[in-house]
Write a protein that binds this DNA or RNA. Structure first.
Lengths: 245, 245
DNA sequence: CAGTGGTCTAGACCACTGA
DNA sequence: CAGTGGTCTAGACCACTGA
């Protein structure tokens, strides 16, 4: 079976990207079945009228995504397991929306406060300096699912309550021109305090899933510090990991 | 300040790797401070007597690790925030050992059983076919920390109780020539059952952190299915995420 | 405008794999 | 042994950034 591949040199889309997109879609649609050998890079390059480095760049991006495996002396194969997207720095709001859960958000606190020692350390600002404080209740199907507390450095973003109820925080940040780069997360569990139980509709002492996160932009500035609690019956963290070679 | 970089063409270590190692160590030791511009690729290549693609390959690997940021028209900069290693498919045993926690393992079950529907689906074997079952209690400082239940397909690995108590499962797999490729994980929380509480030294109904995982090798075969429970007072998941560009 | 990284070519030699 | 991916060279032209 010969896979139909072609590139358009008139397109502004890079050639390696055109190729990797076609391969990815062929894998996702089952045209390239698991275990298939791709054919060697030099022949593939000749067939497409591309240079070998360009073909390698396309293949490499799919290896990085976990869709292909390369073995010296053997060839490049489509991975057998259905690899979903590896873990990304994703927005809870976007994840829920993608899953068709129709999330809703209620902003309970949106104000400026003096940074506590913990918040100041996380955001890298002076203690007692002003920071934004945000508390939101996220529901799906009208039921509370998570309670989100966030702190943001001042002057970064217009935090409009209306917008915060219509979309997620990460999307607002990106729209404000902030380039998210990395985040440090801690996921744990503990018993709900009376106040937490009340907010989430659980009983006091019930198990809660917790997440603490500091997000950085590409200049290394902390742009957000959040402490979130989730109802474990309604939410868990699910992700794909790739072993780095 | 001029950073001292040099490559040894007599070494079997690839040139791009020699360079990326030197840059990484300079960043980790603070010789290259956050925000520093690396100097353009062409000049860097000339200085080292390398071609530009080789220099790019070195830089790219550090961009992938989150240590450098590239901006067209601007240059390549050392990231400001201390980025630790991004999330890897790591072994709990290795993580604890690295943290100086001196983990110990007690094997409670090491036997062959008929696969339940859940286990069969996870491992991709027939229901009721024979699989290895493993139950281990992991302690640090003599205190229980996690209870690990694992299932493995038959014939993959010699599961020696002595070795299992001396090291981690992933290390045994790698030693057996298995190339780990990816894993699908779910992290959640729930209340401890009476049996679970007993095993971990908690009270019944106490919150537990849970992890479910299927690990695949590079041929796409499921090599392990695990359901783990952790005492949240003694363990949490901590990791760094990078935003994929 | 000058300077940067992004993309691309057309080769070369090598190490490793499996028959 | 033939076939594969891994590494490397010495260029080229382009798009984007910021002064």
């Amino acid at each position: 079976m010969q896979l139909e591949l072609s590139v358009d040199r008139g397109s502004p889309v890079p050639l390696y990207f055109q190729l990797s997109q076609q391969l990815e879609s062929a894998i996702e649609h089952g045209v390239l079945t698991p275990g298939t050998l791709l054919g060697n890079e030099i022949e593939l390059a000749a067939r497409l009228g591309l240079s070998r480095p360009t073909v390698r760049q396309a293949i490499q991006s799919l290896v990085d995504k976990g869709l292909l495996v390369r073995r010296r002396g053997v060839g490049t194969q489509v991975v057998h397991s259905r690899v979903k997207r590896p873990l990304e720095l994703s927005s809870l709001y976007d994840d829920l929306e993608t899953a068709g859960q129709r999330p809703s958000t209620k902003v309970l606190v949106n104000t400026l406060v003096a940074a506590s020692a913990e918040v100041a350390a996380a955001l890298g600002v002076a203690e007692d300096s002003e920071v934004h404080q945000l508390e939101r209740l996220r529901c799906t199907h009208g039921e509370p699912m998570a309670y989100l507390c966030n702190y943001l450095p001042p002057g970064l973003l217009d935090l409009d309550t209306g917008q915060l109820e219509a979309t997620g925080l990460y999307r607002l940040m990106r729209a404000a021109g902030i380039t998210l780069h990395s985040a440090r997360q801690t996921i744990g569990a503990r018993a709900a305090t009376a106040a937490e139980a009340e907010r989430l509709g659980e009983r006091s002492g019930a198990p809660l899933l917790t997440m603490e996160r500091v997000t950085f932009d590409d200049t290394g500035r902390a742009v957000e510090f959040g402490t979130h609690t989730y109802r474990p019956s309604r939410y868990s963290f699910e992700f794909q990991l790739l072993v780095r070679p």
